[in-house]
Design a protein around this nucleic acid. Structure first.
Lengths: 229, 229
DNA sequence: GATTCTTTTTACAAATTGTTCACCGATTTT
DNA sequence: AAAATCGGTGAACAATTTGTAAAAAGAATC
C-alpha cells in the first residue's frame, strides 16, 4: 500500500496542485475542503501524514491539529500564509511537525514530507522489501516470489497480500483488516475476495515447507504462521 | 538523469574550477554563492551531494548543513580552509559526511565524492558511464548502444531509459518513477509514453541474449532482469 | 522553411488479473 | 443429530493493464 496523505485545504487550486504532484510521486492522496470534513476523512482513511491549512471554514487548522493529536501521532505539516508566520510558536504547541509558508515550491514540499516521514519512523524506504523464509523469498523490490529456488509468476494482489501477512508472522488478520490494509480503506467489495486470493496463494505454496503455512483461523481470518518464532 | 551536485561557495574562482572538473566527469552542477541561496537551491534541485564551504555570507556552512540534515540525508562534504580544521568535530556533529581542506587537488575531490556517494547507499554504478552485459554495451559517454558487437542507432530518451533500468538490474520501476527519474520530476505527461519507449527498445534488443531482458511487471512497471545476479 | 528524426498522444485489440457467485463440505452451536 | 454458520473452490464474468500501430506534435538539421 502506498503512503497515504490527507490534504485539508479550502483553496481548490492549491489542493489540486498538491495532489497532482504528490500522486505523481506515488502517494495516495485525499482532499478535504474544510476542517470538519478533514477530521472525518482523517478517521476513515488513517493517513500517514496530513497537510493542513490554517485558515479553514467550519473548524480551523489549529482545531483540526488538536483533534488529530488527541487521537494519534500522525505527523502534521501546516500550510501557512506569510502573515501567519508568527503563529509558528502557537503551532508547535499544538503539535504540528513542520511548516511550509505559501507560496511554496513543490520540491520543498516533497523534501519536507520525506523528512517528516523519515523522522516519524514511517519511512517507507525502511520497510523490509525482501522477506526470507525457509524455501520462500518474497521480494517486493524485484516483485518476485521465489519458492524452492524457483521463480513463481504471481499477480500483484497476491504478492501484496502474502507480503502483508508475512510481514507480521503469526498475527491474525480479519478479512476486513486485509481489505483495508492491502486493498485500501476506500475499497468496498465482498470479503470473500480475500478467500479466493488465499486459495490461489496456497496453490503456489502448499507442501513447500513445514516451517510456515497460510493458516485459517476459524471465524476470524488468516495468518502466516511460522514454526519457531 | 545525471548525478546532481550542489556547490555552495562564495569564491567564484573556486566554484568555477570545481564546476569545470565535475561537469567534465558527467555530473550536473549548480552553484550557490551564499548560504541562503544554497538552502533555496537545495530544495529546488534536490542534489545527490552538496559541496559546502564553511565561511559563507548570510548563513554559514554549519547553518546550511543543519538545515539540509533536518530535511534529508543528502550527503554533505565540507570545504574548509586549513585554519578551520579544528572545526572538524563540530562539523561531524552537524552531520557532514566528509572534509576537504583547501587548497585541494581535483583528483582528491573526485575520489572523495565517489567514496561518499558509495557509502551513502547511492548506487555508485549510477555514474558508471558504461554498462556491460552479455552481448550488450550501454555507453553513455559515447551515447552508443552496442548489440552483438554492432552499433545500433538509438535516440537519447531510449538510451537514458535503458541506462536507468540497467543501472539497477532486477529492480522494478513504476512508470511514474521512470518519468521522475529519467524525464525529470517536473514532467507531466502520459505514463504510456514509457510503454512506447520500452517497446522500441525491445525491438532493438529482442532475442539477443538469454542473460537479460526487459521484463514487464504487471500492474507495477518494468525492470531490466538479469539471470544470475 | 522544408525535411527528417524523435517524442508524445491516441485508439483499439489482446492479455492478464480481480471479483462475484453458487454449491458443497467443514465446523460449530443448539 | 439437526441447524446454523463459515470456509474452500471452480468457473463465469468484469475490470484493469499492456502491446502495438499509427497519427500528431515537437525538435533538430540542412
Amino acid at each position: 500500500m502506498a503512503t497515504k496523505i490527507l490534504i485539508v485545504e479550502d483553496d481548490h487550486n492549491i489542493a489540486d496542485l498538491l495532489r497532482l504532484y504528490l500522486e505523481k510521486e506515488g502517494y495516495e492522496v485525499q482532499i478535504a475542503s474544510d476542517g470538519g470534513k478533514g477530521v472525518e476523512l482523517f478517521r476513515r482513511m488513517q493517513p500517514d501524514l496530513v497537510l493542513l491549512d490554517i485558515m479553514l471554514p467550519v473548524l480551523d487548522g489549529w482545531g483540526v491539529c488538536r483533534t488529530i493529536r488527541a487521537e494519534s501521532q500522525t505527523p502534521v505539516i501546516m500550510l501557512t500564509a506569510k502573515g501567519e508566520l508568527d503563529d509558528k510558536v502557537t503551532g508547535l504547541r499544538q503539535g504540528a511537525d513542520d511548516y511550509i509558508t505559501k507560496p511554496f515550491e513543490m520540491p520543498e514540499v516533497l523534501a519536507r514530507i520525506e523528512a517528516v516521514l523519515r523522522r516519524s519512523g514511517k519511512n517507507p524506504d525502511k520497510h523490509e522489501k525482501r522477506l526470507v523464509f525457509d524455501k520462500l523469498i518474497i521480494d517486493m523490490e524485484a516483485f518476485e516470489l521465489t519458492v524452492n529456488g524457483k521463480k513463481i509468476p504471481t499477480p500483484p494482489k497476491e504478492m501484496e497480500l502474502l507480503y502483508h501477512l508475512a510481514s507480521t508472522p503469526n498475527r491474525v488478520y480479519t478479512r476486513n483488516q486485509l481489505l483495508d490494509e492491502v486493498w485500501g480503506f476506500d475499497y468496498f467489495g465482498d470479503t470473500r475476495t480475500v478467500d479466493v486470493h488465499i486459495k490461489r496463494l496456497r496453490e503456489k505454496l502448499e507442501g513447500v515447507s513445514d516451517q510456515w503455512s497460510l493458516k485459517t483461523v476459524w471465524s476470524v481470518g488468516y495468518k502466516f504462521e511460522v514454526a519457531n518464532p
